[in-house]
Amino acid sequence: MKKGVLLVNLGSPDSTKPKDVKKYLDEFLMDPRVIDLPKWARVLLVKGIILNTRPKKSAEAYAKIWWEEGSPLIVISERLKEKVQEKLNIPVALAMRYGSMSLEKGLQELVDQGVTEVKTIPLYPQFAMATTETIDVKVDELVAQFFPQLKITRTPAFYHREDYIEVLSRSIQEKLKGLDYEHILFSYHGVPERHIRKSDITNGNCKMNGKCCFKMGSEQHEFCYRHQCEITTVNVAKKLGLKRGTYSTTFQSRLGFDPWLKPYTDRTIERMGKNGIKKMAIVTPAFVSDCLETLEEIAMEGEEIFHEVGGEEFTTIPCLNDRDDFVDVLISMVEEWRIINTDKAIA
């Protein structure tokens, strides 16, 4: 069997034109694992309200961060893919869950090179319904419909891998070296609280009180986004030797009126500024590639909020992007998979 690797990221509109943004948002928000409402309610909300109001505003936001080469997320992901390919002697393809760089195209690219066994690597350190799960489900659908000859190996969440924590910690340390900051905020993408409950394989053991997030060894943590975010912060803080009270975990990018994971990033930035914090640093470990949520929502809107309430220095730490040491983490994942498969074949 010929092996190949498919790196998968979120996706992006083809341009900053409202019509392209609308097309992208339609596909993204109509995913039942992103907005997990009954289809009639999702259609009413997305097509009846959001797509009639949000595309223009989102297009303006994308325009603020768009690069000459195109969408930052796409450009960075392509750079990352090229670096991974340089270090592997098997085919590597890149796909997006939403947008024109579809999963179908990515799988077809590998098939065209003779690949029969694919390791999918969602570029999300933590598992969530709206990220990793929707990729896995879509890949399964495509394989059943178009690629029955393919064998798929999934990649579990890698938030707790020692090499990932080492690289993430190093990236933070490099950015903050020589800076006198008072607090570092670990901001993760938010999800509705009900997503946590739906991902609870113990059927109700999760109490949503934050306490069970720090109890190690529970089987529910394999698919608990909140736990994985909290433990990412804990492991990085330990690696960096951060003192308790000088860092915290928050969640950004909520939508609608249902309760989402708290505390909220924007309100925390505002509160800390009002409480006298003058120098803040912020890192976004739920993203490996800088994108709209990091470049516009955090680096622009977040800094504006902080300055409005009296904050002075707001340092945004870049995502891992195409760092060479992050490339090495991905290479390790692939090599571990190849070794396991080789051992099975020998046995």
Rank of each mutant, 00 (worst) to 15 (best):
L10A: 03
G310M: 10
G210Y: 05
D343V: 12
T250V: 12
V115P: 09
K215D: 04
V167A: 02
T342R: 12
V236N: 00
G114I: 10
R97V: 02
F257G: 06
L142M: 08
K239W: 04
S218T: 01
S199F: 03
I152F: 09
R323D: 11
I74V: 13
Q126P: 05
H183F: 12
K151I: 05
V8Q: 03
I346F: 14
P259G: 09
E86F: 02
R97L: 02
S332D: 15
F28D: 07
T232K: 05
I317R: 06
T265L: 14
K3W: 02
V143D: 00
K56M: 09
R54L: 12
T53C: 06
Y247M: 03
H189Q: 02
G204K: 07
Y98C: 07
K243D: 14
D328G: 10
F306R: 10
V111E: 09
D140N: 13
V43N: 10
L80E: 08
L261W: 01
N235H: 11
E270V: 09
K278I: 14
P259I: 09
K243E: 15
N89M: 08
G190A: 07
S218E: 14
E86W: 01
V5D: 01
D324Q: 13
L51D: 03
C212T: 03
E312Y: 08
L242T: 04
D136H: 10
R161M: 14
G276E: 07
E303S: 12
V43S: 11
R161N: 12
G276N: 12
G311F: 10
G4E: 03
Y225C: 00
G190M: 06
Q173N: 15
T132G: 06
G311S: 08
E293S: 13
A93G: 13
R323S: 11
K87F: 00
P38L: 04
A157V: 01
R323W: 04
T202W: 05
A93V: 06
P192V: 04
D36K: 06
F158H: 07
P263V: 06
Q173V: 04
L150T: 00
A63Y: 13
I305Y: 10
A281L: 09
G99P: 03
M129K: 07
K274Y: 09
P32F: 02
V137Q: 08
P13G: 05
L51E: 07
E335Y: 14
T233A: 11
F146W: 02
D14G: 14
D20C: 03
W66N: 07
E222Q: 12
G311E: 04
I74Y: 09
T250P: 06
C319I: 08
V75N: 09
S218N: 10
K278D: 06
H307K: 15
T153H: 15
M280F: 11
L261S: 05
W337A: 11
K56N: 12
L6E: 03
I65Q: 05
C319D: 05
